[in-house]
Design a protein around this nucleic acid. Structure first.
Lengths: 238, 238
DNA sequence: CTGTTTATGTCTGATACCGTACCGACTTGT
DNA sequence: ACAAGTCGGTACGGTATCAGACATAAACAG
């Protein structure tokens, strides 16, 4: 098997780290498929691997004691999981799982931990990513507090679109309703609203982005801040 | 002027760091008063000092382009500001300001930054605090999405109570309504509801915690998770 | 083709919360 | 003591969203 070439990977963090850093990681990286619902990390448990997604979308979900839950972050090939690795936390209270199937390079948790202790640049990059993710969850909090369902839905579609290859996003209303912590029929009506404005097209199990620019305009108050912050901290994606 | 003694400080992070770490910080620490509304950090600007509050409560607030805002984190003597310092972020998009006046030790941003680069233990402690704060904002997002105003208010009072000395918290309904991103009259009615259950007592400009245990019981689904996580990551407060 | 599952669309009534306005009560300054 | 400002209580109509149930429709499995 040939060695993994840095200029062939699609994960943004793997691309942006120095060639030296990548060189040290390379030997421990392993390619894996990530089917839908695959768990990348379980709440309050040490997780054996860190993942650098190459394709697909993962959700970070927080849960209350009574079982209410909502998504607080989205990870695609812009990031890695679990971000708490760089924060010395051991584990975190979230559930992280695949929402749109994909693939990733993974590396044993302890290996990556050891590497970042000796590589200040790499540590810095992942720390800045952790900050970008924290900002994402902060703006999710804001959005949950003040915005309407259709705007939050638009934000969510845009965030997934950013992390997808084409314009199609495969998932059900049921699933979306859990992510946004709203009723399933509310998702249906909100999608109809966006469809009525010709921003998206929606079929059984699929949402298709039809007019990205207009979608951004519609969501201008709810989408964009944390994306700007990501660019400042990490740099533009390919 | 005598040197600051570590066993006399009240800030939890300053107390919990090693004597060596504290020794290196000590020379740069400076005591300051923090009046209400004092800005500890401004959005998207480098901030000159890091603060370790000894008393009082600061809020981290995120704002949307149209000016909608909500609190995404609370900092008292359990923490420091800005937490993004340890994440190499330079600055962050939030506004951080005093909500209940107090005091703090402050240290030039660059000094602390330099110190944590050479002190792995100190870096680890502050990184874990950054994680604790991120968890706080994640649970705020959850709470904003699924809980009712009276529960969110109860959570908020508990979080402030944790960071206060007595049972009194001084602030106006107006202010609270901004923190929770609700109407001011909604705060009034929610407070009446908690008062009716004998959990608190409320006067012009003051909220008094009357029955902490019952308040926790009332807020059981909304308060507690991130507090547990703080204890795991940082350790019990004095 | 048929029955079963899964996903979506729709309805009805309830309710939590909003926007706005207004008024009284307390606080402060002169 | 009086005016001016601040803060809190209340009311009214409007609406976004909920809770739950039910009906269709597409996909799937035999």
């Amino acid at each position: 098997m040939g060695e993994i070439r840095q200029d062939m990977v699609r994960n943004n963090l793997l691309r942006l780290m120095s060639a030296d850093s990548f060189g040290r990681l390379r030997g421990d990286l392993e390619w894996v498929e990530l089917p839908r619902a695959f768990e990348l990390s379980r709440p309050n448990e040490a997780c054996p691997y860190a993942y650098f997604p190459e394709a697909g979308i993962a959700s970070i979900v927080a849960k209350s004691p009574e079982g209410q839950q909502t998504e607080i972050g989205v990870i695609g090939r812009d990031g890695m999981t679990p971000a708490s690795l760089v924060l010395d936390a051991g584990h975190d209270p979230y559930s992280i799982f695949m929402q749109v199937q994909g693939e990733a390079y993974r590396i044993p948790y302890a290996s990556l931990q050891a590497l970042i202790h000796e590589d200040r640049d790499l540590h810095g990059l992942l720390a800045r990513y952790a900050q970008a993710l924290a900002v994402q969850s902060a703006y999710t909090a804001l959005s949950n507090a003040v915005h309407h369902i259709d705007e939050r839905l638009a934000r969510w579609i845009l965030m997934c679109h950013d992390r997808s290859d084409g314009n199609e996003i495969s998932l059900t209303h049921e699933f979306l309703s859990i992510m946004l912590a709203v009723r399933r029929p509310s998702v249906t009506t909100a999608l109809h609203m966006l469809e009525g404005k010709k921003l998206i097209y929606s079929e059984r199990g699929v949402i298709i982005v039809r007019d990205r620019a207009a979608l951004e305009a519609f969501a201008h108050d709810v989408y964009g801040e944390c994306e700007k912050e990501y660019e400042r901290l990490i740099g533009t994606r390919p």
